[in-house]
Computed example of a mutant assay.
Amino acid sequence: MTTTRLTRYDRSMLRLMNDRRGQAWYATAARRRLAVAAHITLTVAIGALMTHFFLAEGEPLWPVAAMAVLLLPWMVATGIINGATRGLLELREHVLDERQSAERSRVLARAHRMTTLLLAATAVALLIAGGVDGNAPKAYAAPLLIAVLVVHWVMPLWVAGLRAEDEPAEDEPLEAGALGR
C-alpha cells in the first residue's frame, strides 16, 4: 500500500475483501474454477432470458421473474470470486500493494485481449450472417453487442478468479521432539 491515507470506504472494503469467513468456498483451485464456471453460466442464462424477453413478441413476464431469481446466485458467485482474489478488482489502486497492483495489470491486460478477440469474432459472425442472408441481422445485432459489453464488463473478474492462487498453508506448530534437543 502507498502512504495515501485510507478513507472509511477504503478501510471497509479492505476489511470486507479480506474477510476469510467464506474461504471454504474458494479454498482450492477446483472450487474457484467452479465459481467462475457458475458465474459464466448464470451470466449467459440471464443474458439469454433478457434477449428472449426483448425479442419475443407478446411474451408474459416470466423471463423477468427468472432473471430476478438468477440474480441472487449470480451475486453470490461474484462475491466468491471477489473473496478469492481478495478484492483485486474491487479495491482502489492506492489500497493495493505492489504485487496486487502488478497482478491487477496482468489480469486487465489478459481480459482486454480476450474481449478484443470476442469483439472481432462477433463482428465477423454478424458480417457472415449478413452476407449469407443478404441483409445484416438487425434484430440480433443489439442483443449480441449488449452481450459482448457484459462479457467485457465481467471478463476481468473471470480472469482474476481463474488466476487466483491458493492461500499459503499456515505454519505447522513444531513438536518438542522435532527441535533436535
Rank of each mutant, 00 (worst) to 15 (best):
A141H: 08
L162R: 14
T85D: 08
A37G: 04
G161T: 05
A102V: 12
D97L: 13
A24N: 02
L118E: 10
G22F: 08
I128R: 12
L91W: 09
T3I: 11
E57L: 05
R113V: 05
L174Y: 13
A56Y: 01
M75Q: 14
V44D: 12
R33P: 08
V151Q: 04
E170S: 15
R110M: 15
L61K: 00
T122G: 03
D97A: 06
W158P: 04
I40R: 00
V148K: 04
G177M: 01
R110K: 14
L126N: 03
L71E: 14
I80T: 06
G87C: 10
E93A: 05
L127V: 11
G58K: 09
L16A: 04
A121E: 00
E175S: 15
I46M: 07
R110V: 13
L71I: 07
V148A: 06
A109G: 14
A35M: 06
H112T: 14
G79C: 05
R11A: 02
E170Y: 12
E103V: 04
M155H: 04
L108Q: 15
A109N: 15
V44S: 00
G87M: 04
L144F: 10
M13C: 08
V44T: 07
V69E: 02
S105F: 10
L118M: 09
A66E: 13
P73L: 02
G58A: 04
L126T: 09
W153F: 15
I128S: 02
V76H: 13
L88F: 12
L72D: 00
W25T: 10
A120N: 00
V76Q: 06
Q100L: 05
G177C: 03
A141I: 15
A160L: 00
S12I: 01
D133N: 11
E170A: 15
V150P: 09
A121P: 12
L6S: 11
G22E: 02
D19N: 15
L96K: 07
E93G: 03
A129Y: 02
A27C: 07
L42T: 04
L71G: 03
A84P: 08
D19R: 12
W62V: 09
G58C: 04
W153P: 02
A24I: 14
R8W: 11
L96R: 10
W153M: 02
D19C: 05
L14M: 13
A136I: 09
L55Q: 08
E175Y: 13
M114W: 13
L162S: 10
T3S: 03
A84T: 05
E167C: 11
R32G: 02
T85R: 07
T4P: 03
L16T: 00
R33T: 05
R15W: 07
A27S: 06
R86M: 09
